[in-house]
Amino acid sequence: MHEAKLMRDLMAHITASAEQNGGGRVTGVHVWLGALSHFTPAHFVEHFEDASAGTAAEGAAVTSEVSTDARDPDALWVRVLSITTESG
């Protein structure tokens, strides 16, 4: 599924970012959903839960900003704005 591919891509980036920043568990992910990204927040969370199972981001809380601007140049995209990690 294309969403699954997208999520795998995002997950790889999220876990790599966590590693680069000292490792640990990812407890939060904050995303921006473009108006034409084909995701609702709930839909994104479902896919995130599937894709994060067994990774350092399993169980992370997802918060999202939903854009309604279809003319935004990034309207078709999902943007990961930040992640929160916990270590120790």
């Binding site: 294309h2 591919k5 640990g24 930040s82 270590s87 120790g88």
Partner: peptide, 23 residues
């Protein structure tokens, strides 16, 4: 050791591509 929480700015873009898939 205390739990350390940090927030990392990522700003990474991805989007759904393609036309049809069957699973």
């Amino acid at each position: 050791m205390a739990v350390e929480t940090r927030t990392i700015r990522v700003d990474y873009l991805a989007r759904v591509e393609g036309e049809g898939s069957l699973y």
